[in-house]
Design a protein around this nucleic acid. Structure first.
Lengths: 197, 197, 197, 197
DNA sequence: CATGAATGAGTATTCATTCAT
DNA sequence: AATGAATGAATACTCATTCAT
């Protein structure tokens, strides 16, 4: 793998996250990656294909960087879900409420179509959902029997994305914490009467 | 009086929603509104101020266009919440999964800063939250006593935004329905044991 | 005379001097004069005609504001000339070397043509020259007989304009003082041997 | 190699001189240089940096184009100074009194600040002054001992700039000739009594 | 006299991309 | 693989000016 290519993807990933896709010019990526335009177009025929590479990169790093550490930190599957919320909470606070979920941001900005980009965005969201889904299945016995792991994981993602959006827009962690607290109550109700339908 | 100004705001509102803020050029707004550039800048000193006007417009229309009709359709406060989810569900389906929440999209695209735009985005989210919060209070007796209306409303918004995002990205209503179904189960648990803590 | 008209001329005069003619937009003049565009165009059919009014205004004020006070300050005609150099020297220093002769600046910026503007610029330069010329005539007996008052006045203006330009560009009074010192030596030579050809 | 860059500087130099800096649009430069906008901005990040390049170009050509030929034409140092006045006189006449000193015009239009442009303008004026200063030193023995070459050169520049301004504004060579005639008389007085203080 | 909406050509500059070397 | 000159359409925005009220 070319080191130049990696530098380009790395710079693009950071800039797309910080500024958005449309707001990030190729010139800025070139400057930040210390690369000349010809090189970029040698590896990527267009800005959109570069975005696809960025999305591939996110997907490749999801398990080693995010999911792995969480699974190492605790073996309790329900605890793992809340670790995920903590992980994002920290990111929101650390960036002074400017943090947005990289995938979520791009999904809303460029996910309206149905091309390769949207498919790769969905692949990322799916990978997240599947990780959570696995934890839910592991927690199976402690939850009501009728809980559908896949649906539950979809809710987790919805809450996460919606809560980050509210934190970022309100410049306050209050709505994030409120959303997670309500979600936690839900999990409480599901587990307190374990065994029930 | 200022019919021209209204046409500009209307066109900008639609285009910002359909294509995003950065991806919408002033030239496109001018063409769609059938207005010349000087006129636009007579009313709005910059594209950003025009965005502010669009956000003001969303806020002004929230009650008459969205909240009002829902409240007329049913007097049951819990039903009203699910009507909201239905409302968005229809929009997602009707646009072939290209629909995104106008405020949510803009919040993720341009809500990272802390200027007037971000404040007006938050004012819109706050208005939505307060409308839901009012319904939750009305439903008070039917829910567990300890339910915090404000927190609960924050969760509703989170689920809504996250669910729309997943529907749009996956080009399928499945994750949307899954999120809402899980949320509905939560409401069920909160109401089935009404009077409890 | 309309007070509004006066405010417009006053603002335009200041702005043209500070920023130049082309660099000063009508919008800036309107803001500074607190006037609306319709009013400005009621008095002046174009920006160029406004410039003509500014030049008329300079001409009207030359004697009462500049020449008069100098003539009151000293009755020695040669002294008067050097008072003029002092007057400009103070202006250059007081503005931190950003001062340029109002007429000179405009002459170089818009004096290339041969319309009314150029003629009014020349009328201003002529009035200055004539004032100096009068002083030279008054000093007649103290100078060599062959001194041509009109030519001498032309030199005074040349030195003044060139010296201000050098001060402004070099951000230093050195070349201004050097030019005046040399000119003073010339006057010295012309007077030391008075009566000679 | 960079023939395109040279064409841009050449066109800009001519247009800035003919029309002034503010009055010259980038579009005009592009048309005259037969270059597309992207190319111009490949070499010059802004119109102001292009102006800097023009000023560098003037400085580079001063000796080979102006000073050199004059020094070749005559070895008499005082004669050289008057050749300079002749050189400008011809330019004024040849252009029908529309000629302005390129450096002087720009100095008055954009020399009010203290950035790179003003510094480069001053570098040009300094180079002119130094060339004249050298001639004055060479003429040393023929002038009064106390003549300061640097001050004298400053006067030469002042007279030149002021005289060109008057010629251009009055559409007549009279004031130019008058200024030079007076200056010539000064030189006459300085040399007639050579050896004196 | 004054207002301010409206015009549309014009501004400097940035865009993603191509291509010869 | 890499360079950097070159492209030309597009960008947000400003300009001097007009005109109905």
């Amino acid at each position: 793998m070319s080191e130049t290519r990696a530098r380009i993807v790395e710079a693009a990933q950071r800039l797309f996250h910080e500024q958005g896709y449309a707001a990030t010019g190729i010139a800025t990526i070139l400057r930040e990656a210390d690369v000349r335009s010809g090189s970029l177009y040698h590896f990527f025929p267009s800005k959109e294909v570069l975005l696809e590479a960025v999305l591939d990169n996110y997907l490749e790093h999801l398990r080693p960087i995010v999911i792995g550490p969480i699974e190492e930190a605790t073996s309790d599957p329900i605890e793992r879900i809340f670790r995920l919320f903590d992980f994002y909470r920290e990111a929101v606070l650390a960036t002074g409420f400017s943090y947005g979920c990289p995938i979520g941001n791009l999904a809303l900005e460029v996910g309206g179509g149905d091309g390769a980009v949207t498919r790769k965005l969905d692949a990322n969201l799916a990978a997240w959902r599947e990780a959570v889904e696995g934890w839910v299945r592991d927690a199976g016995p402690r939850m009501r029997k009728s809980v559908n792991a896949s649906d539950f994981a979809a809710l987790v993602l919805s809450v996460m994305e919606g809560a980050v959006m509210q934190a970022r827009t309100s410049k306050s962690i209050a709505r994030y914490d409120a959303s997670v607290a309500e979600f936690r109550r839900y999990v409480g109700l599901l587990t307190e009467a374990r065994g029930k339908a």
